[in-house]
Design a protein around this nucleic acid. Structure first.
Lengths: 346, 346
DNA sequence: TTGAAAGCGCTAACAT
DNA sequence: ATGTTAGCGCTTTCAA
């Protein structure tokens, strides 16, 4: 059995209060007493029971992070960023997967008794939508990530989707591309990353005075590589001429690269490609993938800061915060460079 | 403030014991009482305090999973598998990253008070080695994953590294390759995935009566894509002739594919390539990557079963369990197939 | 500076 | 079938 405060107190010949004071590094402990206690602590191998401490303090120093899927590189990297930031603040992260946009699972998760194990939740919904906004107003502190739900009550940290998508499309236009296809559109939604990025795409065309062509719009529900590859095969079958491709995320873009390679379409010579998210693989694909760096690490940092404020009980009006983005240019939108060195960040 | 058992009891006009019985679905509760209690539960929005329950029961139904890095696809997928299996058993998983083989962090994690938040730990060491075997014998239940530490005391679940590597190498030999390079060797270790897979490589050569050539051995410490690409560039610079490549994991293989593409080496025409791990990307690279499927999902299932047994207090001798593997053949070792459909599993 | 004791919310032994 | 109560290990008034 693990040693408790009582055991240590008995061993050191003091009260548990004193042991508690020593363990928690409080003042008002005589040096002699302190060392006697510490000795007992090591002798017994005492380690504080975090569950008891949590029950007593009403605070666990564990925060939850709910993402659609860890096997999507973007979310694995987000999780990594969040864990790094959390660690610096002495927090532990408990990750939960909502499994690719299952609205029911998301709602269940919000209401799960497991919320009680954490002091607060960073929640990245995918299946829930603006209609469900009321449901995210749970008792415990919560910060929303992503673009599914706006103005719902909780703080919200996200990226500049529309602006970044506009910049991405402009990037292709500036390189002389005129017929730019867009991959991953969700025509059924008006919010969400897809809708916002699509908006940016259209805005860039408009600003450049380029016509919008419906035949260049490729709908895809799930933004996985396989869907990108499949959809692009179908698109190529249709024979619609195009010289640029804006993929709504890097997974789609990588799938598209693969499909084009299979079909003998040269990138960037025939088609210049840009993705979104700047996942690590974008550097190592062939050709390396130009992408939008959305400021993921910044999102993680801000989100945790905001969540911690709420946990501490700060009561300001809900905030909507956005990270900075940038375009990382690589081979897929620039020089052919099959002989160049692997893409670097910047 | 959240409602407690007491509040519900008062609201329903019964004792807390009865409420507890209802909440935990015990028998010995009259139907009328039960419905009255349930009504009070919904009216007050009562949700059991898991921390209190854990303190009382000495069991949290949370298990820990410690992996090197979530951003390595293999571990993201392992985490996903573990979470799926855990969920089916009513468990929650708390993931921790040891950050790419940092021995100090691994040891710290084993001794962290955070262990107290979980009923047991699935631990995949990378920095610790056989010399540290004693340190994994912690108080709480633990199951080792991977190949860093053997015969240490805890149960150990792993894959058939040597056998699978031998099969992988044989796969290339059977396709007529005679000068097979091996990528990712760790000459400084005698256990560990690298050593075991290297052993399999050598065994396959021996069985086939092929000479072992030191110049075909490529050492790489970190099995990331960038290192695979870099090392292969160096190897190509050396001008050593080769017609097959066994990469010790898929990330290295994907990096190598990229490097060969940059240097005009055709895969599989000039060099047939096989990886290890069968990460999802292997299907979508160009060419798609032949790989060893190591039985990751099976490892997750077995590991949780074994851990749960220990948590329940089973006291049998420590076991060493291994998953089944198979070779998933794709383009990188077979037909050129640039026009084929994206690789499928099998 | 240190000690005694209450109580966080729950479960279960024991009593009725 | 239901109620009373001790106690899981900790922190924290309140006293000494």
């Amino acid at each position: 059995m693990a040693a408790t405060l009582h055991d240590v107190a008995r061993e050191a010949g003091v009260s548990i209060k004193t042991v508690s004071n020593v363990v928690n590094d409080r003042r008002h402990v005589a040096a002699a007493t302190r060392s006697r206690v510490l000795e007992a602590v090591t002798r017994l191998g005492y380690r504080p029971n975090l569950t008891a401490r949590t029950l007593r303090n009403g605070r666990s120093n564990v925060i939850g992070l709910a993402v659609p899927e860890l096997t999507l590189a973007y979310f694995a990297q987000l999780a990594d960023d969040v864990m790094r930031e959390a660690e610096e603040r002495g927090l532990v992260v408990m990750i939960e997967q909502t499994r690719g946009g299952d609205r029911g699972r998301e709602i269940e998760l919000l209401q799960s008794p497991r919320r009680q194990l954490t002091d607060g939740l960073l929640f990245s919904p995918l299946g829930m939508s603006q209609d469900d906004a009321a449901l995210v107003n749970i008792d415990s502190p919560i910060v929303l990530l992503g673009e599914r739900i706006f103005d719902a009550g909780p703080d919200h940290v996200t990226m500049q989707n529309t602006e970044a998508a506009e910049a991405a499309t402009r990037h292709l236009i500036e390189r002389g591309r005129r017929r730019i296809a867009v991959l991953g559109v969700h025509p059924w939604e008006t919010l969400g990353s897809a809708a916002l990025r699509y908006e940016g795409y259209r805005r860039a065309l408009e600003v450049a005075g380029l016509p919008f062509e419906q035949e260049l719009v490729i709908d895809i529900e799930y933004w996985h590589r396989r869907n990108g590859a499949g959809a692009l095969h179908d698109f190529l079958d249709r024979g619609v001429p195009f010289d640029g491709l804006f993929a709504m995320n890097d997974e789609l873009a990588l799938g598209a690269l693969r499909a084009m390679q299979e079909r003998g379409v040269r990138v960037p010579d025939d088609v210049a490609v840009i993705g979104f998210d700047n996942i690590e693989e974008a550097q190592y694909s062939s050709p390396s993938l130009t992408s939008v760096e959305p400021g993921r690490a910044e999102i993680a940092r801000i989100a945790i800061d905001v969540l911690l404020e709420r946990i501490e009980g700060v009561t300001v009006a809900p905030r909507e915060l956005r990270s900075q983005f940038s375009i990382i240019e690589r081979e897929s939108s620039g020089t052919s460079g099959l002989w160049g060195s692997p893409g670097r960040l910047s």
